[in-house]
Amino acid sequence: MKIEIQLKQKTLLFFLLLFLCTLKEETVFAQKPEMHYGDLDIPTRPYAKDPYVIYFQGTYWMYYSVPGAQFKEWYIGIANSTDLTHWEKKGNLKGQKGTVEEKGICAPGALVKDGVLHLFYQTYGNGKLDAICHAFSTNGIDFERDATNPIFRPKISDWSCGRAIDAEVVAYKNNYFLYYATRDPDYKIQQQGVAVAPITANFDRNSWSEVPNMPMLKPELAWEKKCIEAASCIQKGKYLYMFYAGAYNNEPQQIGVARSVDGIHWKRMSEEPFLTNGEAGTWNESESGHPNVFKAQDGRYYLFFQGNNDKGKTWYLSKVEIGWNKKGPYLKK
Rank of each mutant, 00 (worst) to 15 (best):
I189D: 02
G95H: 01
A79C: 06
V261R: 09
L221V: 08
G193S: 09
V116K: 08
E285A: 07
A131D: 02
D158M: 13
A231I: 06
Y244K: 00
K24A: 05
D310N: 06
E271Q: 09
L240N: 08
A167S: 03
G263D: 01
D262T: 12
A197G: 06
F29N: 14
V293T: 00
D184S: 05
Q235Y: 14
Y248E: 11
K32W: 14
L119A: 05
A135G: 01
I42W: 01
V100C: 13
K327T: 13
Y75K: 15
Y176K: 01
G98H: 03
S157I: 06
M62I: 13
N309D: 14
N206S: 12
K89T: 01
N174Q: 15
E88I: 15
N250E: 06
Q297D: 14
P215C: 04
N92I: 15
S288E: 02
T44K: 14
F29A: 09
Q297F: 04
T123M: 02
H265W: 13
L16T: 10
I165W: 04
M62W: 01
P212H: 12
W159H: 10
T44D: 10
S157D: 00
E229G: 06
N92G: 04
K226E: 05
M242P: 02
V257H: 03
K128L: 10
N126E: 13
G312F: 02
G98C: 07
P329A: 05
Q70M: 11
G193K: 03
Y301W: 10
V196T: 08
A131I: 05
G68F: 09
Y172S: 07
K218N: 08
